[in-house]
């Protein structure tokens, strides 16, 4: 008797959410493509956010987060009435959600998807499509109280975040004070990118250094760097722009991060920012296709104010072509 009751309770707990999920999907299929307008904007069919229904789930890079959040806000401001979630959990974790559990519709990433992640996605029937949406100049920053570091070379970065204990180990004229390191967590694309560029894909040196604080939350890093003149950290440029008054950004190899150097491709730590989705999701959930379309169409208008740099026109039009290909014949 007691066992039966307990089992009933457990079974109902499991079934209820499933049943609820099923019923909402059915109501959404009415005129799924009503949001497409006749006019083409920037090479894609125009989107009318007022007519887009259903929810969108995105997750991934904390670097891409401010940009996606801004696009989501604008999408809602222009009339989208559904719920769009943007989770800031790191590129790696984002891909995990996208390719293993299949919980997210769009994966934000600050590094390209890895082959093994594509293979994983295929096992759950997803075929990731890449959209470049902007460019980040990875900002290596120190506190504005720090007066001695203005620029570093790539080799010096490897020392600062690796073997060196004191600042004076890197350059003799720097003070003999311990380096306090604030780096993005191991699940973030920024971490992966930095390891690849500076440490030739081997994270050992960076993780075994003394005084390392890791966090997926870039605001924690900002707080830490700002707190001490002997602290250094790196994160997406947008987080530097937001905290310009308390942080100094370093020149890398004598090159300042700016729109010119990033667009010209000379800033050494510039990297593309990505969205990933999948054609079957975009067809099943037209709201996802609508949002990506909207994103690709207007991202360049928003990207600078968030603190990043526009993707090249070539990269954007490649993304638009991928969108058209994915949605071919559906509307």
């Amino acid at each position: 008797m007691k066992k039966i009751l307990l089992t009933l309770l457990l079974v109902s707990l499991i079934i209820l959410p499933v049943a609820a999920g099923g019923s909402t999907e059915q109501t959404e299929t009415v005129d799924a493509y009503g949001w497409i307008e006749d006019q083409m904007v920037n090479g894609l069919p125009g989107v009318n956010p007022l007519k887009v229904t259903g929810n969108i789930v995105t997750a991934g890079s904390s670097t891409v987060f401010p940009l996606s959040e801004r696009m989501a806000e604008r999408f809602s401001e222009e009339g989208y009435s559904g719920t769009i979630t943007v989770d800031s959990i790191g590129s790696g974790a984002g891909f995990e959600r996208f390719t293993v559990a299949g919980e997210s519709d769009i994966s934000n990433a600050s590094r390209p998807i890895k082959d093994k992640e594509i293979a994983q996605a295929k096992t759950i029937g997803r075929n990731p499509i890449e959209f470049k949406v902007g460019t980040d100049a990875l900002a290596v920053t120190v506190s504005s109280k720090n007066t001695f570091v203005k620029d570093v070379t790539l080799e010096e970065l490897a020392q600062i975040f690796g073997s060196a204990v004191y600042w004076s180990d890197v350059r003799p004229q720097w003070p003999k004070e311990e380096i306090m390191r604030f780096i993005p967590g191991t699940d973030s694309g920024t971490f992966d990118y930095f390891v690849e560029e500076i440490f030739d894909k081997d994270a050992t040196a960076m993780l075994s250094a003394e005084n390392v604080q890791l966090s997926e939350d870039d605001n924690i890093l900002v707080q830490g760097v700002k707190g001490s003149e002997y602290a250094i950290g790196f994160f997406g440029y947008a987080y530097y722009v937001e905290n310009k008054d308390v942080l100094n950004v370093l020149d890398i190899e004598g090159i300042e991060a700016s729109e010119d150097t990033v667009n010209a491709g000379v800033y050494p730590l510039a990297r593309p920012l990505f969205l990933y989705s999948d054609a079957s999701i975009m067809k099943e959930k037209p709201q996802v296709a609508a949002f990506i379309n909207f994103y690709l169409t207007y991202v360049t208008e928003e990207v600078t104010s968030v603190g990043y740099f526009p993707a090249s026109e070539e990269a954007l039009s490649q993304g638009r072509a991928s969108w058209l290909e994915a949605m071919e014949g559906t509307y």
Binding site: I89, G92, A93, R97, G185, T186, D187, E216
Partner: peptide, 14 residues
């Protein structure tokens, strides 16, 4: 908290 917040891969030793 830090490790579970970033939902690391289920198969990893982390």
């Amino acid at each position: 908290v830090r490790i579970s917040g970033g939902d690391v891969s289920y198969n990893s030793v982390d």
